[in-house]
Simulated scan of single mutants.
Amino acid sequence: MRLIFVGDVMGQLGIQTLQTYLPQIKAKWRPQVTIVNGENAANGRGIKEKQFKEILKAGADVITLGNHAFDQSEVQDLLQKNDNLIRPANYPGNAVPGSGVTVKQVNQEHLAVINLQGRAMMNPLDDPFQKAQEIIGALPKETKIFVDFHAEATSEKAALAYYLDGRIDALVGTHTHVQTNDARTLSNGTVFLTDVGMTGDYDGIIGVKSASSVRRFLTQRPTRYELAEHSRMQINYCVVDLSQTNKIQACQINPDQPFI
């Protein structure tokens, strides 16, 4: 089974980038499942029905979220009605809209996609380590498992990957918007990438106009972040092959690394 995972789609430029490149990426790699993190799709904060439909139309099978999951009020209804849109599973309480896991049938196999959120330097959700263990324990034994771990700290992402090594097939981090150069297979067969990167503006700073980000550091005062509407584009993704020997490859398309 082969899957494509695309990093955080940032605003409308991110949607445009996805529409431009995802069909070409899928034609090249021919994945059975395409997963896209869409938690920044609505102007950088959450997702609305418009962006949800646009990402699906561009070629996604499953959309994951993160710390901005509930920033848009209409997402609650979207989560209730669509099992291909999932939010972090470790939100506290029993009345959280939607689910943090979805299972897709791929030929004769099943793939579980799990969305979790870290706690280091982020909102104090429930323990992602315990929640992951609960979800995995409830899945049929032969299920392939992919985890999108939306977290700030590199150490927390690596720690969860090592904790789950051998019990899941792949764990890929999101949230920091910069692709890391550490795609690897752990000792018990789980493949891991600290962060897959983002999709959208190539000339800004992690998806926002560089001037507004620089201004914030210069003045040390609150500054309104602005997203680029017209800019050079980038898309960061990874290709994951799940078989007896799992493999992962990090990929980028941008002006310095054009699509081939």
Results as ranks from 00 to 15, higher is better:
residue 237 Y to V: 03
residue 214 V to H: 01
residue 214 V to E: 03
residue 154 T to D: 01
residue 168 I to N: 08
residue 22 L to N: 04
residue 59 G to L: 03
residue 125 L to T: 11
residue 185 T to I: 15
residue 84 N to R: 14
residue 235 I to Q: 01
residue 58 A to F: 05
residue 111 L to M: 08
residue 47 I to T: 07
residue 112 A to T: 00
residue 171 L to Y: 07
residue 121 M to S: 13
residue 8 D to Q: 03
residue 204 G to Y: 02
residue 87 R to I: 07
residue 212 S to Q: 13
residue 33 V to N: 06
residue 25 I to N: 08
residue 4 I to C: 06
residue 51 Q to K: 11
residue 100 G to M: 02
residue 27 A to N: 15
residue 24 Q to F: 10
residue 41 A to T: 05
residue 7 G to M: 05
residue 93 G to P: 01
residue 94 N to E: 12
residue 62 V to R: 01
residue 74 E to C: 09
residue 40 N to F: 00
residue 252 Q to H: 11
residue 50 K to G: 07
residue 55 I to P: 04
residue 257 Q to T: 13
residue 98 G to Q: 04
residue 50 K to D: 12
residue 74 E to F: 09
residue 187 S to N: 13
residue 69 A to L: 05
residue 9 V to A: 03
residue 67 N to I: 08
residue 161 A to V: 07
residue 227 L to W: 01
residue 26 K to F: 08
residue 92 P to E: 13
residue 116 L to C: 06
residue 186 L to G: 03
residue 211 A to T: 11
residue 235 I to Y: 00
residue 152 E to W: 10
residue 142 E to R: 14
residue 25 I to H: 05
residue 47 I to G: 07
residue 126 D to F: 10
residue 70 F to K: 08
residue 62 V to C: 01
residue 155 S to N: 11
residue 168 I to W: 07
residue 199 T to Q: 00
residue 98 G to K: 02
residue 194 T to D: 02
residue 65 L to S: 09
residue 245 T to Q: 14
residue 89 A to M: 03
residue 113 V to R: 05
residue 100 G to R: 03
residue 181 N to V: 12
residue 100 G to Q: 02
residue 83 D to Q: 14
residue 215 R to Y: 10
residue 50 K to V: 14
residue 191 V to F: 07
residue 216 R to M: 09
residue 162 Y to G: 08
residue 17 T to G: 01
residue 166 G to A: 08
residue 42 A to W: 11
residue 163 Y to N: 13
residue 129 F to D: 09
residue 206 I to P: 04
residue 136 I to L: 12
residue 230 H to A: 14
residue 136 I to D: 10
residue 135 I to V: 05
residue 76 Q to C: 13
residue 256 D to T: 14
residue 164 L to P: 07
residue 74 E to S: 12
residue 149 F to G: 06
residue 10 M to N: 05
residue 229 E to N: 14
residue 253 I to H: 02
residue 195 D to R: 04
residue 212 S to A: 12
residue 4 I to H: 02
residue 99 S to A: 14
residue 256 D to M: 13
residue 131 K to P: 03
residue 156 E to D: 08
residue 228 A to Q: 00
residue 190 T to L: 12
residue 172 V to A: 03
residue 69 A to E: 06
residue 127 D to H: 11
residue 111 L to G: 06
residue 75 V to R: 10
residue 246 N to H: 10
residue 121 M to D: 11
residue 132 A to I: 06
residue 91 Y to K: 00
residue 198 M to K: 00
residue 55 I to Q: 01
residue 35 I to N: 00
residue 220 Q to P: 07
residue 248 I to H: 04
residue 110 H to Q: 15
residue 257 Q to P: 00
residue 32 Q to S: 15
residue 51 Q to F: 10
residue 134 E to I: 12
residue 123 N to M: 13
residue 165 D to Y: 05
residue 192 F to T: 06
residue 89 A to I: 04
residue 42 A to F: 13
residue 148 D to K: 04
residue 166 G to F: 09
residue 58 A to L: 05
residue 134 E to F: 08
residue 127 D to N: 15
residue 161 A to C: 10
residue 191 V to I: 08
residue 36 V to P: 02
residue 36 V to C: 01
residue 215 R to K: 15
residue 252 Q to F: 05
residue 30 R to V: 14
residue 48 K to S: 14
residue 192 F to K: 07
residue 27 A to I: 09
residue 47 I to V: 12
residue 55 I to A: 02
residue 192 F to Q: 08
residue 122 M to L: 15
residue 158 A to S: 12
residue 243 S to E: 13
residue 222 P to L: 11
